[in-house]
């Protein structure tokens, strides 16, 4: 474990670059641009029209449905990573195994399509 700690250096570097980019851009935009602060400038606006009401209004459950179905298929795809890496080693048995797994999920997918859960109307 101790020796392969250096293997994580690229990942650490990536995190530093990602964090640095966010922090850097925020710092630069706040420091470099001219700053005029007035009541009208700092007002929230929406396409030039005065904003009305609260942003926290309950919205359609369809967004949630799409998101939860996405998560399910996302997890499904993750199961395919270890299978794809070992594809040759597992052979036909692994292939059938995966077909069964995908078969159940496709059943669910057709159920979703038939029920029209992804239709926006």
């Amino acid at each position: 474990m101790q020796s392969n700690l250096y293997d994580y250096l690229p990942i650490l570097l990536m995190f530093i670059v990602a964090g640095g980019f966010v922090g850097g851009t925020m710092f630069v935009t706040h420091k470099l641009g001219p700053q005029i602060k007035s009541k009208i400038k700092l007002d929230t606006f929406e396409c030039g029209i005065e904003s009305q009401g609260n942003a926290r209004i309950p919205f359609s459950i369809k967004y949630f449905l799409v998101a939860i179905l996405f998560v399910l298929f996302d997890v499904e795809v993750i199961f395919m990573y270890p299978w794809a890496v070992n594809f040759k080693e597992l052979g036909l048995f692994g292939f059938i195994e995966m077909l069964t797994f995908m078969g159940f999920l496709l059943l669910g997918f057709f159920y979703i399509l038939k029920k029209g859960a992804l239709k926006w109307e």
Partner: peptide, 12 residues
């Protein structure tokens, strides 16, 4: 995979 199926049906 059956768990996934149940979750899908439940969500729908």
């Amino acid at each position: 995979s059956i768990l996934f199926l149940v979750a899908m049906v439940g969500a729908v």
